[in-house]
């Protein structure tokens, strides 16, 4: 279980990349994804799915995701999400 405790970013706005910016929100706010992309009509749904999937896999249920896509493939989106999460998160310490 990961928690987003600080703002973070990963990626660039070069073509074929995606810039992910994560901002912490309170637990009751849930997940909010703000996506801009030149391929929104053809791939917006799929980009959203990948972002949600990574968050789910990492057990994150509250965060604001700003995704500035420049035509990234799914593998790139996934990698940028993982890095952004790593930079933003702290593992929950038990006890």
């Amino acid at each position: 279980m990961l928690q987003i405790i600080q703002p973070s970013q990963a990626g660039t706005v070069e073509s074929n990349d995606i810039l992910i910016i994560l901002t912490p929100v309170s637990a009751d706010k849930g997940i909010h994804v703000e996506l801009t992309s030149p391929v929104l009509k053809k791939y917006g749904r799929q980009i959203n799915n990948v972002i949600q999937e990574v968050l789910r896999e990492q057990g994150i249920d509250a965060v604001h995701v700003s995704a500035n896509d420049r035509g990234a493939l799914d593998c790139t989106i996934r990698a940028r999400m993982m890095t952004a999460i790593d930079r933003a998160a702290a593992k929950e310490v038990l006890g």
Partner: peptide
């Protein structure tokens, strides 16, 4: 690589 695009 890209996935099947949604129709416009």
């Amino acid at each position: 690589f890209a996935g099947k695009p949604d129709p416009i």
